[in-house]
Design a protein around this nucleic acid. Structure first.
Length: 206
DNA sequence: AACCAGGAGAGAG
DNA sequence: CTCTCTCATGGT
C-alpha cells in the first residue's frame, strides 16, 4: 500500500480540527474578483465594509465599476485601505473581466493563457490572479500566500523560493480536486491566524 | 503604541 | 536578482 503523502494528510487533519471554511464568501464570481483585489495586504473585515458600500449602492457589477467616477469609487472602498491604487486596479481588471465573461474566454483560453491575461493587468499579481482563477472561475490552481510558506516551514513540508515552486508542490502532491484546493488554502489561512493568536498569548503572559 | 492584515510594483544596488 | 520602500485603513 502506498504511503499516504503528508501534504494531503495534513489537509485532512486541519479539516477535522477546524471544519469547512467555505471559501470564498461571495454571492457572485465578480464579487470574488472585487474581494480578491481589495484584500491585498488588508484585513478581510475592512474588505467587507467596502463591499457593503458597493452593494448598498448597487455598484457591485463590472459595468458600474468601469463607468463610475474614480473618486467616487475611492470613497466607497476607503475602509479597505490603499484605496487609490485599488480603485484603479478594480477599474483596470474589470475591463479585462468584462471581456472574459462576455466572450467566454475562460472556456476558450488555456489555464496558462488566462492566468497570463490576468497577470498582464497592473496590480494583479500571482496570488490575486490565482484566487480569482480558483474561487471565481473554478480553475484547478493552488493559491499560495505568506501563511502557506509559514505552514510549509512549520511542518517541514517544503522550502522553495518562488511562488510557483510552492504552487506546483501543492498541485503535485494533492488530488486534482478543486474543492480540496479551495478548502486547503482557506484552512491554511485559518491555521495561520490561530498560530498568531497563540504567539500573542505566550509573548504577553508573564 | 507598535504591529499587521487573505499583496504588488517600482527603484536601488 | 535581492532587498527596501510605498501604498492606507482599522483592529488588537
Amino acid at each position: 500500500m502506498e504511503r499516504e503523502n503528508r501534504v494531503y494528510a495534513l489537509y485532512k487533519s486541519l479539516l477535522k480540527k477546524y471544519g469547512k471554511q467555505n471559501w470564498w464568501p461571495a454571492e457572485t464570481p465578480y464579487e470574488v474578483v472585487v474581494g480578491a483585489i481589495l484584500t491585498q495586504n488588508t484585513n478581510w473585515k475592512n474588505v467587507e465594509k467596502a463591499i457593503k458600500n458597493l452593494k448598498e449602492n448597487q455598484l457591485l457589477n463590472y459595468d458600474s465599476i468601469i463607468t463610475i467616477d474614480k473618486e467616487y469609487l475611492e470613497s466607497l472602498i476607503k475602509p479597505s485601505g490603499f484605496y487609490k491604487q485599488k480603485a484603479q486596479r478594480l477599474k483596470d481588471f474589470s475591463k479585462v473581466w468584462k471581456k472574459v465573461v462576455e466572450n467566454n474566454l475562460h472556456k476558450k483560453y488555456s489555464l496558462t493563457e488566462l492566468r497570463n491575461l490576468f497577470l498582464s493587468v497592473k496590480g494583479i499579481g500571482k496570488e490575486t490572479a490565482d484566487s480569482i482563477l480558483l474561487y471565481a472561475l473554478n480553475k484547478p490552481i493552488f493559491v499560495i500566500d505568506a501563511y502557506t510558506k509559514h505552514f510549509c516551514n512549520y511542518y517541514s513540508l517544503y522550502s522553495g523560493k518562488e511562488y510557483d515552486d510552492y504552487r506546483l508542490f501543492f498541485e503535485q502532491n494533492l488530488p486534482k480536486d478543486i474543492e480540496v484546493y479551495k478548502e486547503y488554502h482557506a484552512l491554511i489561512v485559518k491555521w495561520g491566524k490561530e498560530k498568531r493568536k497563540e504567539r500573542f498569548k505566550t509573548t504577553n503572559k508573564k
